[in-house]
């Protein structure tokens, strides 16, 4: 991983990173990827990929409306609202 890779993934994750830390991140992340490369050598044809650490399956809920309108409550947290809408910096399409 080089500087550009680190900057790209930081941007995708919207993480603000310090320029002086980039070299260290690149080194650490490369080490992790090296470990992955090492693990890729293990024969795993017989192993089912694990998508979740718990050995359980998803519980399903009945299709019922259980939530009430709590807009006022939730919008107390919002920096800006207008006629029920959350306001965000202009997004131009």
């Amino acid at each position: 991983m080089d500087k550009a890779d680190v900057e790209k993934i930081a941007h995708l994750a919207r993480l603000a990173i310090d320029q002086k830390d980039i070299a260290r991140y690149a080194r650490d992340l490369s080490n992790i990827l090296d470990l992955v490369k090492q693990m890729e050598k293990v024969e795993t044809n017989e192993v089912i990929p694990m998508s979740h650490p718990l050995d359980a399956t998803q519980r399903l809920r009945p299709d019922e409306i259980t939530e009430t309108n709590q807009r006022e409550h939730f919008q107390k947290n919002a920096p800006l609202v207008d006629t029920g809408l959350y306001l965000v910096p202009k997004v131009i399409e």
């Binding site: 800006l80 207008d82 029920g84 809408l85 959350y86 306001l87 965000v88 910096p89 997004v91 131009i92």
Partner: peptide, 15 residues
Amino acid sequence: KSLHEDFQGMTGVDL
């Protein structure tokens, strides 16, 4: 849904 009509110069969001 994002609503791009002018809301105080911002975008309104209906979730």
